[in-house]
Amino acid sequence: MPAETPAPASLDLTADPVAITRAICDIPSESGEERVLADLIEQALAGASHLEVVRDGDAIVARTNLGRARRVVIAGHIDTVPINGNVPTRFETDPDGTEYLWGRGTVDMKAGVAVQLKLALELAEPIVDLTWMWYDHEEVSAALNGLGRLAANRPDLFEGDFAILGEPSNGQVEGGCNGTLRAEVRATGLRAHSARSWVGENAIHKLSPALAKLAAYEAETVEVDGLAYREGLNAVIVRGGIAGNVIPDEAVLEVNYRFAPSKSAAEAAEFVTSFFDGYEVTVVDSADGARPGLDDPLAQEFVRAVGAEPRPKYGWTDVARFSALGVPAVNFGPGDPLKAHADDERVAVHQIVDGERALRAWLTGAA
C-alpha cells in the first residue's frame, strides 16, 4: 500500500480547486481524526479580513457580515470513511479522455469542500451574506455529528434564507433527502447442546420468516413536491450464536429503512415495528429526511443560475438539519454518489472546475 503523504504545513487556497481537492484528500481525516485538517483550514482563513472565523471542536465556520438582505449557508463535512489503500490521490484518464482524481474523499466530499474553501477566501463582496461551515463526524452515528453539535452550541450560526450542502450530486441539484432508520429485530430461543438440538429452540431459525418477508418486500417510490423518492428496507447485519456446538438462544437482525421525506422518523419506526410484527423491535438510530424545498425563491434562483435539473436525494444528508430549522436546503457538489465510500472513489476533474465556476457566478451575480 502506498505510504500516506505527510500533512503540509499550510493550505494554499489560492490554488485551483483541483489542486486544493488533492491537497485536502491527501490529509487523512477519517471520522474522529479531523483535527489536523481542521487546524489547517482555520489557519488558511484566519487572515481573511472579510470573514469572521469561529471554531467549535473540529468544526470551522467562516461568515461575512456585509449587511446584505439575504444570507446563504454553504456547508460540507471534512471527515471520510476509513482509508483502504486509496491515499495518496492520483490522476487517471479513461479511454474516452475523461480525467479523474482518484482517492478516498475525492467524491465524499472533499472536492465539494475544496470548491467552498477557495470561494470563501476569494469572495470578499458576494451578493448575499455567506456562512461557510466545515464540520466533523458526519460519517458516523448521528449523535456524534459535528453539524448537530454546532447547531446545539451555536444555533445563531444557522440563521439563513437558503442552504447548500456540498454532497456529491454529479454537479446537479438534489433536493431534500430520504430519512434513515436502523432497527434491531430480535428473536429468542432456548440454548441447548447441538447434539440434542430437539431440547432447545434455535433463535437463528426463528429469524427465517423475517428474512423471507424482507426478501419479498418491494419498496415504494413516493413523490414529494414533484420529486420521486425511492425507499428501501434491507437487512444489513445478522448476529447470533456463541459456539459451533450450541443451539443459539438469541439472534438479532439489523435492518436499515430509507424512507421518503413525506414520513417522519416516528412514522418510519411505526412502519418497521408493524412490518416485523411478532418480533421484539428496537430502533437504535433514526433521522428525519428533508422535503425538497425547491419552491423557495432562492432555491429556484440557484437552480436556474447553475443550469441544473432538480433530482431527489436518496441517501440521508445534513440538509435535513437545515430543513428542521426552517431553512430550505439542497445538495450540490461534484462527484458521482455511486462512487462515495468505494475503494475506487474518484471524481471527474471537470466537475470540480464546473462546480466552482457555477457557484462563483451565482454568488457574484454573474450567472
Rank of each mutant, 00 (worst) to 15 (best):
V72M: 06
V61Q: 00
A46Y: 09
I41A: 01
E33N: 14
R68A: 12
N86Q: 12
V61P: 00
R55V: 13
G85W: 12
G105E: 08
D56E: 15
T98R: 11
N84V: 10
T93F: 02
I83C: 06
G112N: 08
D56T: 10
A114L: 09
A75R: 00
V36I: 14
Q43R: 15
V73T: 14
I27T: 08
V61G: 00
G105D: 10
A62N: 04
D39G: 02
I41S: 01
T89Q: 04
V72G: 04
L51W: 08
G76W: 10
V81D: 09
I78P: 00
G57M: 10
H77G: 07
P95I: 09
C25F: 15
E99W: 01
A75I: 05
G67V: 14
T106P: 03
I78D: 02
N86P: 04
Y100A: 00
G32Q: 08
P82K: 13
A69D: 15
N84P: 00
A69I: 06
A48W: 03
R70C: 04
N86W: 10
L51A: 04
D96Y: 11
I74S: 03
S49N: 08
G57F: 11
A48T: 11
N65F: 03
P82V: 11
E34S: 09
F91A: 09
R68V: 04
T106R: 03
L66M: 04
H77F: 14
D58A: 03
R90K: 12
E33R: 13
A111Y: 04
G32K: 11
T98G: 01
G32N: 06
R104C: 12
G47Y: 01
G32P: 01
N65E: 12
E42R: 14
N84G: 04
I83A: 07
G105R: 01
W102F: 15
L66N: 08
E99L: 06
Y100G: 00
L51K: 02
N65Q: 15
A44Q: 07
R55C: 03
T106M: 07
E30K: 00
E92Q: 08
A62M: 05
H77L: 13
R70N: 07
A46P: 11
G112S: 06
I83M: 07
A69V: 04
A62C: 11
Y100I: 06
M109N: 09
E52T: 15
A111G: 14
T80C: 10
I60F: 06
D39K: 01
E52Q: 11
V87P: 00
P28S: 12
M109S: 08
R55W: 07
D94L: 14
G97W: 07
P95T: 04
P88L: 10
E33M: 05
T89E: 02
T89P: 11
V107M: 06
L101F: 05
E52L: 10
M109Y: 02
R70P: 01
G97H: 09
A44N: 06
G105L: 10
A46V: 05
A111P: 02
R104T: 01
R68T: 03
